[in-house]
């Protein structure tokens, strides 16, 4: 087991040297190349993936921007339409108000006119009745001058101003 066996040393050095040479020359190189090649390929595919991702990101950003633009445009259109509608409504309301005011005004004028003519008719009626009543009381016909005087007195005593100034005041 432990016998001296010096002859093994040259044999070992020979086979060991040859083995290291063979491994170095024919095994380590190809293995290193294979590992390096795979690493390079993985790096490359990672780079490609990164690039694709960046492109997709850019595209997405663009789409988002376009979408935002379209949305704001639509909002602007709706806003404009609403403004136009509001304006039209306000105009219509104004128009209607003016028209109704005009109608009311006309009605006022009509009433005033009617009141005035009614007053006039009433005044002449009252004068006639006063003259008639005076004739009956005095049992004689009045002269034209007295008639006129009586009518004027009666009219003076009557207060019809309140009537004449009736509605619209």
């Amino acid at each position: 087991m432990l016998d001296p066996n010096w002859g093994l040393i040259p044999w070992t050095l020979l086979t060991f040297g040859l083995s290291v040479f063979v491994l170095w020359r024919y095994a380590f190189g190809p293995l290193q190349r294979a590992i390096d090649g795979r690493r390079a390929r993985i790096q490359e595919s990672l780079d490609t993936a990164e690039q694709t991702r960046a492109e997709a990101q850019a595209l997405l950003e663009e789409y988002k921007k376009t979408l935002a633009e379209v949305r704001s445009e639509a909002e602007a259109i709706v806003e404009r339409a609403r403004l136009a509608g509001d304006t039209a409504k306000a105009e219509m309301v104004d128009e209607a108000r003016r028209q109704s005011e005009r109608i009311v005004e006309k009605a006022h004028e009509q009433v005033e006119r009617d009141t005035r003519s009614a007053l006039r008719a009433l005044r002449s009626e009252v004068a006639e009745l006063t003259a008639l009543a005076t004739e009956k009381v005095t049992v004689r016909s009045l002269s034209a001058e007295d008639h006129q005087r009586l009518v004027d007195d009666a009219l003076r005593e009557m207060d019809l101003d309140g009537l004449g100034a009736g509605p619209g005041r």
Binding site: W11, T15, V22, Y26, A27, P30, L31, A34, R38
Partner: peptide
């Protein structure tokens, strides 16, 4: 020792011949 060297040579031969991606 020779067998070891032979195995080393066989391994080196196969590695050298068939390195695949």
């Amino acid at each position: 020792l020779w067998i070891t060297f032979g195995v080393v040579c066989v391994l080196a031969f196969f590695i050298n011949r068939g390195v695949k991606p």
